[in-house]
Simulated scan of single mutants.
Amino acid sequence: MDRKKLVEFKNVSFQYEEEGALVLNQVSFEIYEGEWVAIIGHNGSGKSTIAKLLNGLLMPKDGEIVVDGQKVDDDTVWDIRKDVGMVFQNPDNQFVGATVQDDVAFGMENRGIPREEMRERIQRTLSAVRMQDYLITEPHRLSGGQKQRVAIASVLAIAPKVLILDEATAMLDPTGRKEIMHTVNDIQESEGLSLITITHDLQEIVQADRVIVMNKGEIWEETTPRELFLQRESLREIGLDVPFVAQLTDELMKQGVELKEAALNHEELLEELWKFNSKM
């Protein structure tokens, strides 16, 4: 069965100032229902602009953006925002409630969702991000990672078809980042929604179905994480740090260790090392 096309960028260009340089130049791609797509690139590559265009926070200079069959424009923007939820890098900017449950309820209240259904969604979404024990906690008492999980729950509660995480782990420590990505992976599998993660950290893309690499406002590459990690030198040339596992694999192969060229994580690398050791 053919997958449903949920997001389309059709030759989209954008510039912030009338006479300024193009931030996006003739960008085209598609995202399908239930798919996890990572959009990566260095600062200024255009990746966060894509997120704002998708949500109608910005409008394209040229080209067309379609979300679930609707063209994004001034007339449809509020309908589009029901389908496209966004989580930004600083969760404090998204909190409006006095407690965690108030914050998750806010978006649903604005949409007139019945109170009984709101209660069910609050419980379900907070459980999905493992924050069900913090219902009456004040947001400012939470850690950075906990705040980000609540921000994700608040967006999930309005039942979007597309969830965008725009550098959502950038302000977290390594442990917090790992927790959020684990949460995101669980949610994507259980909720079946389309997920777009926008990042400059290649460690965060390993579980994505597909990766779009942005460079100087254009699509530099569109591939899978495993295939992308084979392009280590090219990634360095456009300012992206290669994950440690890929660097270690590189060094081991130079020393004559026969390994799969694109181990995505430590587990795969250890398995390859075990196989190599068994042959000796």
Rank of each mutant, 00 (worst) to 15 (best):
M1G: 15
R3G: 12
R3F: 03
L6F: 10
E8K: 13
E8V: 13
E8T: 14
F9R: 09
V12Q: 01
S13N: 07
Y16P: 14
Y16S: 07
Y16I: 13
E18R: 15
L22E: 14
L24Q: 06
F29N: 11
I31W: 02
G34S: 08
G34Y: 05
E35W: 11
A38H: 07
I39Q: 08
I40R: 02
G41V: 01
G41L: 11
N43A: 11
G44S: 10
S45M: 11
S45E: 13
G46H: 09
S48N: 07
I50L: 10
I50S: 01
A51H: 04
M59C: 00
M59R: 14
G63R: 03
E64R: 06
E64A: 13
I65M: 12
V67M: 06
D68K: 05
G69C: 09
V72F: 03
D73A: 09
W78M: 13
W78T: 12
R81C: 11
R81D: 12
K82I: 01
K82S: 09
K82T: 09
V84R: 12
G85T: 06
V87N: 03
N90I: 00
P91T: 07
P91W: 03
P91V: 01
N93G: 00
F95S: 07
T99N: 08
Q101F: 02
D103I: 05
D103A: 08
A105T: 06
N110P: 04
P114Q: 03
E116C: 01
E116I: 04
E116K: 15
E120D: 14
T125E: 13
L126D: 02
R130W: 06
R130L: 04
D133M: 02
I136P: 00
E138T: 15
G144T: 11
Q146P: 00
Q146C: 03
K147E: 08
Q148M: 08
Q148L: 07
R149K: 15
A151R: 08
A153K: 02
V155P: 03
I158R: 01
V162H: 05
L163E: 06
L163R: 01
L165A: 04
T169F: 04
T169K: 13
A170F: 06
D173W: 04
I180F: 04
M181A: 04
M181C: 02
N185R: 12
N185V: 00
N185H: 12
Q188M: 01
E189Y: 07
S190V: 04
G192P: 12
G192Q: 10
L193E: 03
S194M: 06
H200P: 08
D201P: 03
E204G: 05
V206T: 15
V211W: 09
M214T: 09
N215P: 00
N215A: 11
E218T: 04
F229T: 06
L230M: 10
R232V: 03
L235S: 09
E237L: 12
I238V: 15
G239M: 12
G239D: 13
L240P: 09
F244H: 07
F244M: 12
V245A: 02
L248Q: 04
L252A: 05
Q255M: 13
L264W: 11
L264H: 08
N265V: 10
H266R: 13
L269K: 10
F276W: 15
S278A: 14
S278M: 12
M280A: 00
